[in-house]
Design a protein around this nucleic acid. Structure first.
Lengths: 236, 236
DNA sequence: TAATATAGTTAGTCGCGGCTAACATATCCG
DNA sequence: CGGATATGTTAGCCGCGACTAACTATATTA
């Protein structure tokens, strides 16, 4: 019999449920054409999905008739919409992302994001809203920073949060992206085998942060902090 | 000739690049078997992907030989790893999500999330780290809240951020999830046509927040604030 | 050096989620 | 009432990214 009712909906089924919810709410029932139009998909593609949703008991569906949601389908649809909304609001209100990008991001992430993380986002926003006005203002200042204000526009995402060997904690690994110094220091490091693409593991950092004991290609090396600072890595 | 070099990598190609980066860094070159093992995929699946990556000039590949990254491939791989790391750290450090869930979430979102949003997350973390200690403490308090402390465990994500008609701004639409009151008020609302699944649009809110003018099924209705508060909706 | 073990490739299959083309049904209106 | 038109369905195709089975190349070792 193998009914195969995966309790997890595929991304596209969730999208369909979402538009069916709004379509039903607005018109009392959803027509195949409306759904197809909203999802920018051929009507024929809709039919197959409706059959799948009906088989999972999320909609009432009979050929050539309008579609309505079952109670379970309504539940599921509101879950989907809620997730979407939480993401979008987080992007706009906390990160200060433009509405268009935020909406697009929400669409793309809503099907993948684990429930725990959605809850985390929602609780974070609730926490912030419950904060005293002064604390909220500090965060709003970030969200409202002018986008063009990021003078580092060219460096984009890549440089934000990039670190050096001096920033790594013991036990962590990273790959060298480049050596951020010139002249004799750069030369010395290259001679030690430190170059682009090499795996570095930090073994120990002395109390003051100098020296730093690392391991590359199987053998150990001790670096001065100043040397470590000029080795740009990407951590695992 | 139609070379078809989509400048956007598919999710799985990105995953392959990621493990190739670490494999090459650790061993000098990546073997098909290692890649297959790390991705929990059959070796035969790897071959096809390597051909695709080679064709896009991201790796050096010749049958039966070990794989290395081209400069472009290295670039691309570090971009992928960076995205992944930013997501994971945001989840653990800002949201206080458990390491395992954070890692899983990062894996699932990294291929979908728009660049602008990744940058937003990275900048947010950088902003917070640059804040005076007192302000940081306020946010850390959230990240470090005990997870079991969420007494609302049962209500999960669904209730966080759920709103009522009284919370909606003019122009916004929502679907009624349920009526959160009993007795005569509930009855009155039902008589007005307000019930589960109905689309509500807020048209205007009087200065004090009472009354609230809404539109359902095409016609207008004025609600007392107290009534609006008992209509639980999910916003579009 | 030949036999065997390990690693890698090819060919062919499957499910998913789109698509088009062709057919079926419903609705509208002269 | 009976087309014409709008709407919906079926059948069959495609690309992706996995798979298995069977084959080929490379490495090890007796």
């Amino acid at each position: 019999m193998s009914v195969k009712s995966a309790d997890t909906l595929s991304a596209s089924l969730e999208d369909y449920l979402d538009v069916i919810l709004w379509s039903v709410a607005a018109n009392g029932a959803a027509r195949v054409r409306d759904i197809a139009g909203q999802l920018r998909v051929q009507a024929s593609s809709v039919t197959g999905v409706l059959q799948a949703l009906a088989q999972k008991q999320f909609i009432h569906y009979r050929p050539y008739e309008a579609v309505t949601l079952t109670p379970a389908g309504f539940e599921e649809a509101t879950r989907v919409v809620q997730r979407h909304r939480i993401l979008r609001e987080f992007f706009t209100e906390v990160l200060g992302i433009a509405a268009g990008v935020a909406e697009e991001g929400a669409c793309r992430l809503e099907h993948e994001i684990p429930t725990d993380i959605v809850r985390g986002l929602a609780e974070f926003m609730a926490y912030v809203k419950a904060l005293p006005e002064a604390d909220q203002a500090v965060l709003r200042r970030f969200a409202e920073r002018s986008v063009c204000g990021s003078a580092t526009a060219g460096s984009s995402e890549m440089s934000v949060g990039r670190s050096t060997v001096a920033d790594m904690k013991p036990g962590r690994q990273g790959v060298i992206v480049r050596i951020g110094s010139r002249g004799s220091l750069s030369r010395r490091l290259a001679d030690m085998g430190l170059g682009r693409g090499v795996l570095v593991e930090v073994e120990a950092v002395a109390p003051v942060g100098d020296p730093i004991r690392i391991r590359i290609r199987g053998y150990q090396l001790a670096l001065r902090r100043s040397e470590a600072r000029s080795i740009i890595v990407i951590e695992k």
